[in-house]
Simulated assay, not measured.
Amino acid sequence: MAVDFENEIKHLRTTMGSVREVTDLGRLESQISELETKVSAPDLWDDQEVAQQVTSALSRAKAEHDRVTGMDTRVDDLEALVELGTEENDAETLVEAEKELGRVRRAVEQLEVRTLLNGEYDEREAVVTIRAGAGGVDAADFAEMLMRMYLRWAERHGYPTAVLDTSYAEEAGLKSATFEVKAPYAFGHLAVEAGTHRLVRISPFDNQGRRQTSFAAVEVVPLIESTDSIEIPENDLKIDVFRSSGPGGQSVNTTDSAVRMTHLPTGTVVSMQNEKSQIQNRAAALRVLQSRLLLLKKAEEDAARKEMAGDVKASWGEQMRSYVLHPYQMVKDLRTNHEVGSTSAVLDGEIDDFIEAGIRWKRAREKSEDRA
């Protein structure tokens, strides 16, 4: 069937019109101009923290602007390619135009999803914590599989990551792990991954080769910024220090450099052991604790935010996504019904389609709640 290029391009332009309206290029250009003025100030780097905030904001604003204007250019180029192929009756050019149409359509869809990330903290970097749930050693192994999946996803996009804490299980896998994804909108994208994940497979740890169901919980919180007002009185903190441990409980540090920080009023606990010194681990633990308390504070202010990371139970009946490796191969999101058969690709970090479907589902649900 011949491709209806005219309607396809018309649809792309309509979508890009919505993207431009949401992005507000005029506002973005004014913001870029203001930030460029600040960056050119000779005393900018007298305060390195402020300087980094300004330069990062400028980089994000320019990237957002170029992303939209660059896509407009790609649609224009696609239209020119179609016109050339049609006028010359060149089949090869039209085949190339059809391929480019697919690429542009996909890119516009991704850009449209980005415009849906307009929540208060969506622009933030993310702190992700994965905990093994029900299922014994298989659950610990699954937690490690999920950590690798998210780190691979970040790697595919060129997003820097930093592992803050890993608590290894005795036999295999992880009891828990915490890491940062240091990229704009990391929280907006990964927030929809929060919840209970379920794995069904033939257990490699069962000598009778039986099928095993196991669970792991994923928590995602926005990374705090210096402008966030989360002050924690010293009396509200209990700080314990201990020696870092590696796989199987083996000691990997001869000094008490690992830190466990407990926020007494809420019972929130954060452990850090991946930095080299106790001071660094304390700073990292405080940063993550503040991030979690920030989200708790937001939940108290906004009753509509019902799905808090601390509510994830990681057990049967609570799952939001299933990874089935036996008796068939399928990964299915139980909220959006998006599913794929290539489990190995998903576990290797190809989760963009799940994330995009989750973002659309989340925004549709929020609109429905607003109308109610």
Results as ranks from 00 to 15, higher is better:
Val95Tyr: 00
Asp311Ile: 03
Ser244Gln: 09
Ala304Lys: 13
Glu225Tyr: 08
Glu307His: 09
Tyr328Arg: 11
Thr178His: 03
Ser229Phe: 08
Val19Phe: 05
Ala186Lys: 04
Ser368Arg: 12
Val324Gly: 01
Asn207Ser: 15
Ala126Trp: 09
Val270Trp: 09
Lys175Thr: 13
Glu79Val: 02
Tyr168Trp: 15
Val221Thr: 12
Thr55Gly: 07
Gly133Ser: 05
Gln329Asp: 12
Ile351Met: 02
His157Ala: 09
Glu64Thr: 13
Gln53Glu: 15
Glu300His: 10
Gly248Met: 03
Lys38Gly: 02
Ala309Met: 09
Met149Ile: 02
Arg152Met: 09
Asn89Ile: 03
Tyr150Thr: 01
Asp47Ala: 00
Ser167Ala: 14
Val39Tyr: 04
Glu225Cys: 09
Ser277Phe: 10
Gly17Glu: 13
Gly209Trp: 07
Tyr168Val: 10
Glu98Val: 01
Glu87Met: 13
Ala183Leu: 05
Arg282Ile: 12
Glu83Phe: 00
Gly248Cys: 06
Asp141Pro: 04
Gln208His: 13
Thr73Gly: 10
Ser322Pro: 01
Val82Tyr: 11
Lys182Ile: 04
Pro265Val: 05
Ala299Met: 15
Gly102Trp: 11
Pro160Arg: 04
Leu237Thr: 03
Glu8Phe: 04
Val221Asn: 06
Ala364Gln: 12
Val346Thr: 01
Ile359Arg: 00
Arg363Tyr: 03
Gly341Trp: 02
Phe142Ala: 07
Ser30Ala: 14
Ala364Asp: 13
Met320Gly: 06
Val82Ala: 07
Ala51Gln: 02
Lys62Trp: 12
Ile230Tyr: 04
Gly85Lys: 04
Pro204Thr: 09
Phe5Gly: 06
Thr69Tyr: 02
Ala51Glu: 03
Leu146Cys: 11
Arg335Phe: 01
Ala132Tyr: 11
Arg106Ser: 14
Glu275Ser: 15
Ala91Tyr: 08
Ile9Ala: 01
Ser214Gln: 05
Glu193Asp: 02
Asn281Thr: 08
Glu366Lys: 05
Pro42Arg: 08
Gly358Asn: 01
